[in-house]
């Protein structure tokens, strides 16, 4: 997933905590091997190479993630779309931009959306209805892996933990001693070195933060509106708190694309500095 994962565990038995933490990190590494577009032997690369030519069987757990992606694609009204891999590549998000793509007025062909992806639950198989389509699970891969890692910590009765992937997706268990919850700072997207808000994550909660900045491609930002092909609108940052990191990831991506009502608690910063919040976990830094 091209990013650093870190975890903090609290408890008395260091040997057991370290072993549980290693198992959680191994699970994250496993999901990186499954989902990476940059590994030739990943399950996503396998699907991207062959699914346009016929049904491709995948590991059941990977298939379940794809089913989850379909649910989230529907719930977000297509604002989160994991079938945009080829379009992202064409626009240069994964390396060199293809010649001529600068002049694309609509860089997302209708055929390159998740409704062109067929899933067969009986065979845990995937098929693309269109050649040239490819999966990119980058928006939700970290969240999915963190959910699985947290499940392992739960299995080992680790009651106090914080895990993050690239600082943009965080999942919490319990709370530090004498604290209300895990306090996570949210930087101002317009002045990154300035803290803007803090999020107090409680037991079992996950936070995901998305912003259109962060990659230097001349289309105004790295999050596209899959429905129009244009880059994201005026949202400078969207942060979502949910009980599942994968859902938080999908919704934070969707809200950057379009800040229309969400089925999750969120904190949004617009390009003109306006802020709106629908979740009690977010507290303005100014008010502290």
């Amino acid at each position: 997933m091209g990013t650093r994962f870190e975890l903090v565990l609290g408890g008395d038995d260091k040997t057991q905590l370290r072993a549980a933490g290693e198992e959680a990190l191994e699970e994250i590494a496993l999901w990186d091997r499954h989902l990476s577009r940059f590994r030739r032997d990943s399950q996503v690369s396998h699907a991207n190479r062959h699914a346009a030519a016929g049904w491709v069987s995948l590991a059941p757990e990977v298939f379940r993630l794809l089913e989850r992606c379909r649910d989230l694609w529907e719930a977000t009204d297509g604002r989160f779309d994991p079938a945009l891999g080829a379009v992202m590549q064409r626009l240069g998000f994964h390396g060199d931009r293809e010649p001529g793509s600068e002049n694309d007025s609509n860089p997302v062909p209708l055929a390159h959306r998740f409704d062109r992806v067929a899933l067969d639950a009986d065979r845990h198989a995937i098929r693309f209805a269109t050649a040239g389509l490819s999966l990119d699970l980058g928006a939700v891969g970290k969240g999915w892996a963190l959910d699985r890692a947290a499940q392992i910590l739960d299995d080992h009765d680790v009651g106090c933990a914080l895990i993050h992937g690239g600082t943009s997706t965080v999942i919490a268990r319990g709370a530090p001693p004498d604290a209300e919850g895990w306090i996570v700072g949210v930087a101002d997207p317009l002045v990154p070195e300035r803290p803007l808000a803090r999020c107090v994550l409680g037991d079992g909660e996950a936070l995901s933060v998305s912003a259109p900045h962060g990659r230097s491609v001349d289309v105004g930002g790295h999050i596209l509106d899959p429905r129009t092909g244009a880059s994201a609108g005026d949202v400078a940052l969207a942060a979502v708190v949910d009980t599942e990191a994968v859902r938080a990831d999908a919704w934070s991506t969707a809200l950057v694309v379009s800040a229309s009502p969400a089925a999750v608690g969120c904190f949004i910063v617009h390009g003109d500095g306006r802020r709106e919040s629908s979740a009690h976990q977010f507290r303005s830094h100014d008010s502290e």
Binding site: H34, Q43, H46, W55, S57, L58, A59, P60, E61, R123, H124, A125, D155
Partner: peptide, 30 residues
Amino acid sequence: AELAKIEGVNVAAVCELDKRRLRRALRRTT
């Protein structure tokens, strides 16, 4: 995970003494 990629090979059973590990292994099957 690798057997799941091979169509026509059905994992009918998994054996593991540890219940938690068995649960995790079964999640990797259909």
